[in-house]
Amino acid sequence: MKSSCVATLALVARVQAGLRFGCSSLTTQRLDPVVEPGRTPSSHVHHIVGGNAFNATMEGDVGERATCTTCEMSEDFSNYWTAVLYFKHPTNGSYHRVPVVNNAALAPGTTGGITVYYTQFDFWDDNTEKQPIKAFPPGFRMTVGSPTTTDPDVAKSNVGLRYNCLQTLLDRGRELVDFPDKPCPAGIFAVQHFPACWDGKNIDSPDHQSHMFNTMDRGGFMNAPPCPESHPVRVPQVTYETVWDTTKFNDMWPEGAPNPFVWSFEGTSGYGTHADYMFGWKGDSLQRAMDTEDCFYDGCGSITKQAMSVANECTVEDFVGEETDGWLEYLPGQGPAN
């Protein structure tokens, strides 16, 4: 999103926006049931939020299997995850996991986690063509971005995968393709926008992306062109926002030194930012929300919210049993023994 804040959003005269809500952190461990199903542990550490059906292998209707969720929307048992940000000490080369803090304007009691959006049409006027929105089917999953991206031109072309160097939680400054090159007063903000055009047939594809098509050409939270014939079904655009609290490491970043933050796959640039999504809404709850017009980032009049004190009680097993925090000699999964 371009430099913006909640106050700016409130000035928009007419909006059909969709859902915006927080999900507290569920677990941080090396699992990836989309890209590396069945592998325990997966290649690098992920920060995961959402329903307690999360495990190394996830098939079928996740919403029917989960019994709790860390998300404010009580009927959302989906799982959302990203790579984890680490600080690499400029002197001794050790690593420390960067904690996640609440984004602005989330429900009281949200603990770290991710802000999730399901948008219909953002900031449209009366001349905007409004395509029907179809909710995802059970078993649907997708990814966006890639940890193997190292080319800055490729990263620039990945519209919707961006960073901000936070001055405050509401003052984001300009969008960046790469990590900030200086300490950020309020942390590093990472956003991942998923494509919103589906082929209407496949709940997954070999690369976890080909069944989707991205029509974004002007940035995130902007109206996009119609879906192409190859991917004719408009689905909600899913977006994640994560605030990484890098502030405690600012004094360890020598003036003029290169960026000391890395992704958990040893991504020394920000180009490899990526995210995974596993649909898990209960029944037709997401479709009901998407069918609601003039719904401005709330429950869309049909979704029951839960107190975050209840959401925070939802947990999953530590399937891997390894240390991912504290000062580590190697990133988990990236050391010489792996």
Rank of each mutant, 00 (worst) to 15 (best):
C5D: 15
L11H: 12
G18H: 08
G18L: 02
F21T: 06
G22M: 02
S25C: 04
L26F: 10
L31I: 09
P33M: 08
P37E: 05
G38V: 00
R39D: 08
S42Y: 11
S43N: 09
H46Q: 02
G50T: 01
G50I: 05
G51L: 07
N55W: 06
V62T: 14
G63D: 05
E64G: 12
T70S: 07
C71T: 06
K88Q: 13
H89N: 14
N103V: 10
G109L: 01
F123N: 12
D125E: 11
R141Q: 10
V144D: 09
G145L: 13
V154I: 14
G160T: 10
G160M: 09
G173N: 02
L176Q: 04
L176D: 01
V177P: 04
A186G: 00
W198I: 06
N202I: 03
N202A: 10
H211R: 02
M216A: 15
D217V: 13
G220Y: 15
P226V: 13
S230M: 01
P236K: 04
P258E: 04
S269D: 14
Y271N: 00
H274I: 05
G283W: 02
D284A: 13
D291N: 15
G301F: 05
K305W: 00
Q306P: 04
Q306N: 06
Q306E: 10
V320H: 00
G321C: 08
T324P: 07
T324I: 11
G326W: 07
G333D: 00
A337W: 14
A337S: 12
